[in-house]
Write a protein that binds this DNA or RNA. Sequence first.
DNA 1: CGTGCCAGGTGCCGT
DNA 2: ACGGCACTTGGCACG
Lengths: 241, 241
Amino acid sequence: MMEKYKFFDLPEFSTVKDILENERKNYVITLFGLCKILYAGRASSIATYSSRLITFKPDGSVLVHSNKKLKPVNWQPSSSEVKVELGDELKIYVERKRPKEVLEILMPIVYYLSLSKVDEGEFHLFGSESEMVEEVVKNPELISRDFIPLEREYQTPFGKIDLLGVTSTGYLVLEFKRAQAGLEAVSQLKRYVDYLSWKGEKVRGGIVAPSISKSALKLLKKYELEYFQLSPRLLSTIRLK
Amino acid sequence: MMEKYKFFDLPEFSTVKDILENERKNYVITLFGLCKILYAGRASSIATYSSRLITFKPDGSVLVHSNKKLKPVNWQPSSSEVKVELGDELKIYVERKRPKEVLEILMPIVYYLSLSKVDEGEFHLFGSESEMVEEVVKNPELISRDFIPLEREYQTPFGKIDLLGVTSTGYLVLEFKRAQAGLEAVSQLKRYVDYLSWKGEKVRGGIVAPSISKSALKLLKKYELEYFQLSPRLLSTIRLK
DNA sequence: CGTGCCAGGTGCCGT
DNA sequence: ACGGCACTTGGCACG
């Protein structure tokens, strides 16, 4: 019977190697120790010797955390291979095939190692962009009296339109944003509208978002596009105090 | 003298509360246990009871990890406040002021708690977009014989231009990408070129990137923009085998 | 597998 | 603080 968790105080390098090689698929493994880290792949980086927390997940993901922020200092996405070499320092290589990337972790000392039987669990998120689209499809009058939705995720050679519909004046392209729309949202919408125009269609375009930045609104008007205010619906049972 | 690390096997709720309240600024604290998680803020979510790893950093960031992927299931960015309530379950509230967001962690059991004195360390990254711009500024002939760089990060009302320069035919707007350029890059460039055109300037635009997607290239040509192939330089001492 | 794009994106730097 | 934008973006869905 596999244990739920285990802790090794000042483990020998050989113990760390053994565990990383044989238990990596069964447990989330956390190392705390001094480490220097070299990364080479899409970019390259050096993190000088410092004490950090390193986490290995069963799917091959690796995270190296400092004492600040959410993002790891270095990392390797899932389906990475782990190799360990013994020596004066413990050397851990984490390699990814495509794109080819290598993470090299050098550890003169490992203060502790822990094994944790972590589960996946169920997870539900509310308030996504696609939920906004659904709401408009169900209640097209949120956009205008004469709006008729035609197709979600309408494919063009230059990206897909969140929601394509028609009004009395022709096609209406809608681009949804769950948070405030910025310049990028306007440029994206413009790209889709341009495409339909090139095809000779009569077409309008609109951003659907809870808010829009001032410069985005200015650009929107320059391009003769429109803005429709709509917020994502959060789960009613979860409320801020 | 503060210890480098510490481990608590099956800690009492009161111990967890005490440590979270008094040592949070000094150590990275890791909890392993069963937990259910409610999140409400920009969106809302529910993660049902499951064993997960929870990390509290001194700056207030909190990460809840499952056994898969790089990204935490739930999280809270730095400068969040932590409150702990005792009861049948341990209740941990992590609150953020702006935007107002709450993370509620319910734990019927904590298998272990660990304290780790994690440091920040030095970090250097090579191969960023700004390094590509620097290279072109130093060697403008990488673009063309007659290209003269004028200004980096040139501000327009519709975003900033990575590098603005002139050639014998007028202005040249350059948009850099460290990885393959896609449709978004082209739309972004078009936005800047449009702006200078509206101002009545004679202007060309180009993407500078190691590669460009097929559809992006097609769009680029539709818009009469250009593509210049250039890769970011990685650190020479770090090489893939 | 390439390509597009959303994300509770995060983080950084500017006004 | 607001806003624009890069990021080893990560992650997913779809051709």
